[in-house]
Amino acid sequence: MNIFRLVGDLSHLAALIILLLKIWKSRSCAGVSGKSQIMFAMVYMTRYLDLFTTFVSVYNSVMKVVFLLFSFVTVYLIYFKFKATYDGNHDTFRVEFLVVPVAGLAVLVNHEFSFLEILWTFSIYLESVAILPQLFMISKTGCEAETITSHYLFALGIYRALYIANWIFRYYMEGFFDFIAIVAGCVQTILYCDFFYLYVTKVWKGKRLTIPA
């Protein structure tokens, strides 16, 4: 473990908490893409199956359970409890155009052709594009993202950017190099760059975040 990965994981946890609190406190999931949240739940389900087969550390197991729990609760709130506030008309990204190619790529490009390893690879690839429906939704719904949603996106984007620092650190310190995770992590972070620019230039100056359509 290193400081980059620890801060990254805490930023990831903060993002999940920010989103959950936003939906729970406002009793509304307006502006939140249910499709992205379903994809995040898929990411954690397919990545954390080793929860039962491999023990890495208490921290690792606890965080996996927390991420799984929070993502399931978030999906539950969006599609069941606060279903009436779900903005389905604007959450129209065709996720099958993401899931199918990602699944195909996971079968073709992976470290080892085994069940758990292909699911892990699928989850890594899926996570790098899972935020697209959310960014697409913000760019469609009049470009206005609630400030809290932009904080959620910022925390979520920063987590993977910190993981890149973690991979650089681990490469020089431990000779650790996971090509698949690094490439997908860079793609994921690049997808946020446009948002990061808008977040810093707008939200930090107290303005509302708008993503040009």
């Binding site: 491999t54 996996k64 390893e117 892990w120």
Partner: peptide, 10 residues
């Protein structure tokens, strides 16, 4: 060990 790769990151 999960396959060849032990994934120790979240």
């Amino acid at each position: 060990r999960v396959g060849i790769y032990m994934h120790d990151e979240l």
